[in-house]
Amino acid sequence: MSLTRRSTLGLMAGAVLAPSFVSAQSFPAKPITIVVPYPAGGPTDAIARFVAQDLTTSIGQNVLVDNRAGASGAVGTRAVAHGAADGYTIIFGNNQTHGNNMFLLKDPGYDAVKDFAPLAGVGAFEHAFVVRKDLPAKDIKELIALAKADPDKLNYGSTGVGSGSHLAMELFMQRAGIKMTHVPFRGAAPLVQEIIGGRIDIANSTLPSVLEQINSGNLRALAIASPERNPRAKDIPTLREQGVSNADADSWAAFFAPAATPAPVLEILSKAILTSLAKPVVTEQILKLGFTMKLRDPTAFKPYHLQEIATWEAIIKASGVKPE
C-alpha cells in the first residue's frame, strides 16, 4: 500500500473518530436540556429542576428543563429518542415512559430499551391510597368491603391510562378481588383536585403528589403500597400490614440519553447527575416530596430496568388493558 493511500485512510479513520473525541473533550460546551415529558408543577418536574439547578453550578453550563407533555409521556420521550445524540438533550423518564408505554400504546414511536442509554436511576415514587374525606372507609379492609358490597360503584382516578397510578390500582384490584370504575386524568394536579372536591372516591397516587394534601387534611390516606412505611408519612400503614400482599407498586424514575450518544459523553453525564443526586442539599429537597431515593449507576440500572418491564408487562396483560 502506498504512503499516500495509507495517509488517506488514516485521515478518514481520524475523521470518523473525531466527533466522539472532540465532543467528549469539550463537553459540555453549551446549555443542556432535560426534557420532562409531563406538565410543569408535578413531583417529576420538581426533581428534574432540583437536579438542573445543581448541575448548572457544577458543570459550568446552564441546564434547562423543558416540559413536553402528551400521550402518556410519549410525546417528549419520542422527541428525545429521535433527537440529536450529542448529550445536550436528555430526559427524566419513568416506568411509564420507559416501560409501560411499550405495551399500552399501539405506536409509542420509540423503543424504551434500544433507543435509550440510562444515565442514573434515581429511586421511586411510592404509591399511597387516598380517598375523599367523607368516604365511609377508614382503612383498606373497609374499602375492600365497600367495593365488594356494590361492584363498580366506587370510582378511582389515575394520571392516565397506563400510568403508574392506573396499573398500581389494577394490581390492587386483582389481589383484593374487587372492581371499581376507572377515571383517567391528564396529570396528578387535576386528579387531586377532583378527589378533594368529592367527585372521585379514591386514587392510588404517588406519595409526592398527595403528601401535602394528606398533611393538610384535605385527603385521607389509607395505605402505602410499599414493603415499609415511608419516613415522611410514618402514620400511614402499608398494604401488607392490613392483610393485602403482592400488591406493592412503586413508580421508578431515571435519567436517560439517546442510545447513540458517545460513550465518553454518557459517562460525563452519568457521573455529574449521580454526584448531584448524592449531595445532601439535593437529597433533602427530593426526600421532602416523599420520594424514596435509591441511586443506581447505568450498570446497576440496566438489569433492574429489564426486570421492571417484564413485571409490568405481565400485570398489563392480566388486567386486560388494551393498547390505544
Rank of each mutant, 00 (worst) to 15 (best):
L55R: 03
P208K: 03
P303T: 08
L3S: 13
S58D: 14
W312F: 09
N204A: 09
Q174S: 13
P39D: 09
V35H: 07
A257K: 03
K114W: 03
A318N: 13
G76Q: 06
T57I: 13
L274G: 10
H166K: 14
L239F: 06
F125G: 00
M1Q: 08
L167F: 07
Q285E: 12
V113Q: 12
A145R: 15
A117I: 05
E324R: 08
K271N: 12
A176Q: 09
L287C: 04
D201S: 08
V244L: 15
G164R: 00
A254I: 07
G83F: 02
N67P: 14
K30D: 07
F301D: 00
A233V: 15
L55Q: 08
T238H: 13
A13E: 07
A46E: 05
I47Y: 04
K153I: 12
S20H: 08
A147H: 15
K30R: 10
I90T: 10
K322A: 08
D250N: 06
N101Y: 03
P118N: 08
G99A: 07
A79D: 14
V131A: 14
R78Y: 01
T283Y: 09
A69C: 09
A233L: 15
V244T: 11
V161Y: 05
P151E: 12
R296Y: 07
T299K: 06
V282A: 12
Q96F: 01
Q53T: 11
Q193A: 11
F27A: 05
G290C: 05
Q213T: 03
A260F: 09
K288I: 11
S26T: 10
A221Q: 02
A176W: 04
D248A: 02
A257D: 05
D139L: 14
A124I: 08
V35I: 09
A314G: 10
G121K: 02
L266W: 02
F50P: 00
V122M: 07
W312E: 02
S7N: 06
D66F: 14
G320T: 05
S276C: 11
L269C: 09
I34S: 03
Q174L: 14
F185K: 03
I309S: 13
K271Q: 13
A278L: 08
V244C: 13
R240N: 15
A120P: 05
R240V: 05
I214W: 06
L55K: 10
Y156I: 13
S23K: 10
S209N: 10
L287D: 04
S158H: 09
G290A: 06
W312S: 00
L17C: 14
G14Y: 04
I214L: 09
G290V: 01
A128D: 01
A29W: 06
W252R: 02
G83N: 14
